[in-house]
């Protein structure tokens, strides 16, 4: 690591002010992306602002049909939460697939979506459920939030405070893990909330998480795995690496999407 100054503000307001006042600050949530990056000397922030001392950022609550999860809520908490299991069981299931148990005890939902790693799991849930990302400044619909590989709609210094999910029972996440890293090589979140059908895909695309609109259209006729027969994605848009070519990933998206829809239709 390169040297940095460490801050641990006690409120979102203070954190945002700090972030605005330093030249090259980095927000530290669970740290499971930032710390490895620092260790490899791939980032050299002058200031690290730890959000771990802000009580407002934690907690899970259900208000009416809206599940609200604080940005600093750990994956393990979401996975184990009776509230989440009741309101959006697929979300609890997804959280239980992220990384490994020790990673889930540190990693946070806010950190994951702010980072928008193309093979992270949470962005698929946000997009697949039509979540709203609430920040220190505004509310952003998930459809507008994930703008590209490691890119989001967040402005410099803007801090995610909570994520609001609609309560959806008919939803499922299926993940095909990279054999080495265990990150999603393809992960598909499929959900049906009345007329709103969403199929969100992570791990596969060069532009990061995306909604597979052709699949969504096809599922409007009948919400069943078979409805996706014959649909395919262009391999050229997919990530191609040692573990899977674009062609393989495009194929996997089809298979995994069918499995996700079948699980959601249950």
């Amino acid at each position: 690591m390169f040297a940095f100054t460490y801050h641990r503000p006690s409120s979102v307001r203070k954190a945002a002010a700090l972030a605005a006042s330093v030249a090259d600050g980095k927000l530290l949530a669970g740290g499971h992306t930032l710390i490895p990056t620092l260790k490899q000397r791939l980032a050299a922030p002058g200031d690290v602002i730890d959000l771990g001392g802000i009580p407002d950022l934690a907690g899970i609550e259900l208000r009416g049909r809206t599940l609200s999860i604080g940005a600093m809520t750990r994956h393990a908490e979401v996975a184990a939460s009776p509230v989440v299991k009741e309101a959006v069981p697929a979300l609890a299931y997804l959280a239980g697939l992220i990384g490994d148990p020790a990673v889930r005890n540190r990693g946070t939902i806010g950190g994951s979506i702010a980072n928008n790693d193309p093979s992270a799991d949470y962005p698929a849930a946000c997009l697949g459920l039509g979540a709203t990302i609430i920040t220190s400044q505004r509310r952003i619909e998930a459809d507008d939030f994930f703008t590209g590989l490691f890119e989001t709609a967040l402005e410099p210094g803007e801090i995610i405070t909570r994520i609001a999910f609609p309560a959806v029972k008919k939803a499922a996440y299926v993940k095909f893990a990279n054999p080495a890293s265990r990150y999603a090589m393809v992960g598909v979140f499929a959900a049906k909330r009345t007329a709103d059908i969403r199929v969100a895909v992570t791990g596969a695309s060069q532009s990061g998480v995306f909604r597979w609109t052709e699949a969504e259209e096809a599922l409007k006729k009948r919400f069943a795995g078979r409805s996706l027969d014959g649909l395919s994605l262009p391999a050229d848009d997919m990530i191609s690496d040692l573990h899977g070519s674009g062609e393989y990933r495009a194929h996997l998206v089809g298979v995994i999407a069918q499995r996700a829809v079948e699980a959601a239709a249950g």
């Binding site: 499971h32 730890d50 148990p101």
Partner: peptide
């Protein structure tokens, strides 16, 4: 953060001590 040789308990939960700053 893959191998888990550094696993300790922090406030009752297993964490990878190689991916936590002492200050955290």
């Amino acid at each position: 953060s893959q191998c888990g040789a550094c696993t300790v308990h922090l406030d009752g939960h297993a964490v990878k001590a190689c991916t936590v700053l002492a200050l955290q």
